[in-house]
């Protein structure tokens, strides 16, 4: 790396992101310490009320619920993604297998959620099927609960976990597994004792890429969840648009931001800084 016109090249990015990303975040920090205004907005004086409100049990329930759903969905996602990534990495048809994972992912996010409504809804495909098979008289209510939210979240974020796991496992030297087998390990032991420790970085990246967006989920619980499966994201939107309590919305946003940032920093420390240097595949 050299001295040179680096700043000239970088200044448009620097200015844009400082103005339209960092500044808004700082305003959130500021607002979270202010008093709600009459019709939205904020007013003086400075206060910690918004943070006191988060600690309130009715909010606390949402916080705990959000963490529970996020952990469960992330767990199931990784559980499915690990064998998938392994199979893809070991296959000779990697491009095809990757494409099969990515194509559904290219479909619009809302359409994918909507597809699940079409399947799980009271007059949806599944109820149709059950009636046709004579297994149910009345419609079964599959939607609008935490299970539905978790299912659709897993569906939505599965590729976020499969892709980094695939690329890590793909770099793994599989002759190590043969060596382990040669030394007397069973298949299962070889995978557990040799493969898993070596792909830890990929597992953490996958965890990060799944947990964080799920933790801040908004659309999925809004569309397939009920009032009891509300998540923090929905709470923010409600405070912003319905209750018009901007400081509270800001405070919750800040909590999510902090949790995310701390999580990422821990992982970066644990994993080395390679995530920062790594390509990010989203679409």
């Amino acid at each position: 790396m050299r001295r040179g016109p680096g700043l000239a090249y970088a200044s448009p990015s620097l200015l844009w992101l400082t103005f339209f990303f960092i500044a808004p975040l700082l305003i959130i920090v500021l607002y979270s310490f202010l008093t709600p205004g009459q019709r939205g907005g904020v007013d003086l004086p400075f206060t910690l009320n918004a943070y006191r409100a988060i600690a309130n049990p009715s909010f606390g329930k949402v916080v705990v619920g959000t963490i529970a759903v996020a952990l469960a969905a992330t767990f199931f996602t990784l559980l499915i993604a690990l064998p998938c990534g392994y199979y893809m990495a070991r296959s000779s048809k990697q491009t095809l297998l990757l494409l099969l994972v990515i194509i559904p992912f290219w479909t619009n996010f809302l359409i994918r959620i909507y597809a699940w409504i079409a399947i799980l809804g009271n007059e949806g495909f599944l109820n149709d099927l059950l009636r046709w098979l004579g297994l149910a008289e009345e419609s079964v209510r599959f939607l609008y609960n935490r299970a539905a939210v978790t299912l659709v979240l897993v569906y939505t974020y599965l590729p976020y976990a499969i892709l980094p796991l695939f690329s890590t496992i793909d770099k793994f030297d599989f002759s190590l597994l043969e060596a382990a087998r040669d030394l007397g390990a069973t298949k299962f032991m070889a995978i557990r004792k040799v493969l898993l420790p070596n792909i830890r970085a990929g597992i953490f990246t996958a965890f990060l890429f799944t947990f964080i967006p799920i933790f801040g989920a908004y659309a999925v619980p809004l569309l397939v969840g009920g009032t009891n499966s509300y998540m923090l994201g929905n709470l923010i939107a409600d405070e912003l648009t319905k209750s018009r309590n901007w400081p509270l919305a800001s405070a919750i946003s800040l909590v999510i931001t902090l949790v995310t940032t701390i999580g990422v920093m821990l992982l970066l420390r644990f994993n080395g800084t390679h995530i920062l240097e790594k390509k990010h595949e989203k679409a």
Binding site: I28, Y218, I256, K282
Partner: peptide, 16 residues
């Protein structure tokens, strides 16, 4: 911006 949940970016820009 890639790691923050989308809602944070949306909310902060709205407020901004």
């Amino acid at each position: 911006p890639m790691i923050l949940p989308e809602i944070i970016i949306g909310v902060s820009l709205l407020v901004f």
